[in-house]
């Protein structure tokens, strides 16, 4: 079973984690057209590559970011949101 390293709790099996989707920034709702907003809300980028993703360590409810290669499933780096990498 795949291992994921929680920045606070260390290396644990992936069953201890919850995937929270790709890290995306919300556009300013007041400044964008309906089309741009709909694209943000409904579309996701499925192209393989290195993505930053939200992950949560369930037992400790710790949210963090994982940089993961979605093609090879290699987890490159995990860090807390807001940390300078």
């Amino acid at each position: 079973m795949k291992l994921m390293t929680c920045p606070i709790n260390g290396s644990r099996p992936i069953s201890e984690f919850f995937y929270g989707g790709e890290l995306r920034s919300m556009p300013d709702p007041n400044m964008v057209t309906d089309e741009v907003w709909a694209d943000y809300v409904f579309h996701r980028n499925n192209a393989p590559g290195i993505k930053c993703e939200w992950w949560c360590h369930i037992p400790s409810n710790s949210w963090f970011i994982a940089e993961r290669n979605t093609l090879t499933d290699e987890i490159i780096h995990t860090y807390l949101w807001g940390e300078v990498v």
Binding site: F18, G20, W54, C56, N61, W63, W81, G82
Partner: peptide
């Protein structure tokens, strides 16, 4: 919901804390 609100609290960094 608790999980998602925790994520939003992490993201928004508002001055508040949520207890389940």
């Amino acid at each position: 919901i608790y999980r998602e609100l925790s994520r939003l609290n992490t993201l928004w960094r508002l001055d508040c804390g949520i207890v389940n």
